[in-house]
Amino acid sequence: MAKRTLVETVINNEPVELLCEPRQSLLEVLRDELHMTGTKEGCLTGDCGACTILVDGRPVCSCLMLGVEAQGHKLETIEGLATGAELHPLQRKFLEHASLQCGICTPGFLMSAKALLDKIPRPTEAEVRYHLAGNLCRCTGYDKIVRAVLDAARESG
């Protein structure tokens, strides 16, 4: 068995020390080592975006990053999106607009959408569609997802 390495990172504002094998992806570490299963696996090749997390504020497919590469970085996952009992406006709008059907792509979409709104607080519909094109949803046809993101931007803007 490959030797495990100590990784010091910050996840959702909490300092975390963890042990992982160099061959484990960050997605695998989050799920199999930390049991943070809110981040989903859809493809393992960076094509579907279900495993999107934020690394130092940038959206990243956690299946394309190794666990050891988290050393010294700040990670944000779906588990940290709500503040205590208060949902993030995007979470609330996804519920109000019925933007999820099966829900498996939802955590990835929420993290990508957060990265977008952090960067462009009042995006156009075209900007929303461009920035979320790395996340696949097979249930909704995206209509209600795009509406929720635009509405969240409108409300917080």
């Binding site: 943070m36 299963t37 996952t77 949902l87 519920l95 999820l100 829900g103």
Partner: peptide, 19 residues
């Protein structure tokens, strides 16, 4: 109305097959 299982799905708490 808001779907009753929605909150678990937007917070990442809902357990899917691999979870």
């Amino acid at each position: 109305p808001i779907r009753p299982d929605g909150i678990e799905k937007v917070t990442g708490r809902a357990l899917y097959g691999a979870d």
